[in-house]
């Protein structure tokens, strides 16, 4: 027993050390966000500086990071909602009804799940140009309606968890099909929606290459594109402002995560086992 508690102490120390290592980059970032360019160039200290306000002025005079935040939020939330709703609808149709082409569609899904998103990137760019959608959010959002992986996941989930009898009962009561989808199927799917929603949201939040190719106007930039544009911008001559810009893009989402972490991580755990 003693052996185990000694081992446990060591393990805890090691774990805490790992956490510390994980957070050192963020720590450096936050400290340096408060220091002037020349202080940063002189060397690293563990104590914060006093230049955070000046750095903020430098940063904000060139780039409105909060705007990027809002933009990313708009895109990611829209993508997540469209993805969840239409994938659920499609999965519902695939599970509940029998129709021509059903198998064709299903097999197409399986194939498309293997296709890397970049395959159609150049085509998507040109399509957006043809549709007059360059420099808008549409090419980033609309494709979320057709997400084979999410449909696949929902389909598997529905097959195992949805009692068909519930639908039969509904039909006898005269409920319309779409009504039943909203009242019965969506609630049943909720855990799966939450799991996929988190992945979809994070995926959209982090997406860099598509908005990089599609967006041009700085006021439409999402956060990743803004970060990319920060390099080589006038801000880049001031390291303190650079660190601050990165920190602003990182810290709020960290705080939001800490509030939601238990929920998010449980969803991921359950999603992993079912998927």
């Amino acid at each position: 027993m003693k052996k185990i508690s000694v081992a446990k102490t060591f393990i805890y120390i090691a774990l805490v050390l790992l956490v510390v290592i994980c957070f050192i980059p963020f720590y450096m970032m936050i400290i340096n966000a408060t220091r002037t360019n020349s202080e940063i160039l002189q060397g690293f200290t563990v104590i914060p500086g006093a230049a955070i306000f000046e750095n903020y002025q430098t940063l904000i005079s060139y780039m409105d990071v909060w705007r990027g935040f809002t933009n990313s939020l708009i895109v990611a939330v829209s993508v997540t909602i469209l993805n969840a709703y239409f994938s659920a609808l499609t999965a519902f149709a695939l599970v509940v009804y029998d129709f021509k082409w059903k198998n064709v569609i299903f097999v197409t899904f399986l194939v498309m799940m293997m296709v890397p998103g970049q395959l159609g990137l150049i085509g998507l760019y040109d399509l957006s140009e043809a549709l007059g959608m360059l420099d808008t959010y549409w090419p980033l959002i609309i494709p979320a309606i057709a997400a084979p992986f999410t449909v696949f996941f929902f389909r598997q989930y529905l097959i195992t968890t949805m009692p068909m009898s519930l639908l039969e009962a509904g039909r006898i009561d005269g409920a319309s099909e779409i009504h039943m989808f909203h009242r019965i199927v969506l609630p049943i799917l909720m855990p799966a929606i939450a799991t996929m929603g988190i992945f979809t949201f994070i995926g959209s939040w982090n997406n860099y290459i598509t908005p990089l190719v599609i967006l041009r106007s700085p006021e439409l930039f999402t956060l990743p594109v803004m970060m990319g544009a920060l390099r080589g911008s006038p801000v880049a001559s001031n390291l303190g402002a650079m660190y601050l810009g990165i920190a602003i893009s990182v810290v709020p989402i960290m705080i939001a995560f800490l509030f939601l972490s238990r929920y998010i991580i449980n969803s991921i755990s359950s999603g992993a086992v079912k998927g």
């Binding site: 140009e129 041009r216 390099r231 080589g232 911008s233 006038p234």
Partner: peptide, 22 residues
């Protein structure tokens, strides 16, 4: 005044000029 850093200037602006979008 929209400022696009030199590094990305042509890659970003050119498509807009080609298409007229933005």
């Amino acid at each position: 005044l929209q400022i696009i850093p030199t590094e990305n200037y042509t890659t970003t602006l050119r498509p807009a000029l080609e298409s007229g979008e933005g």
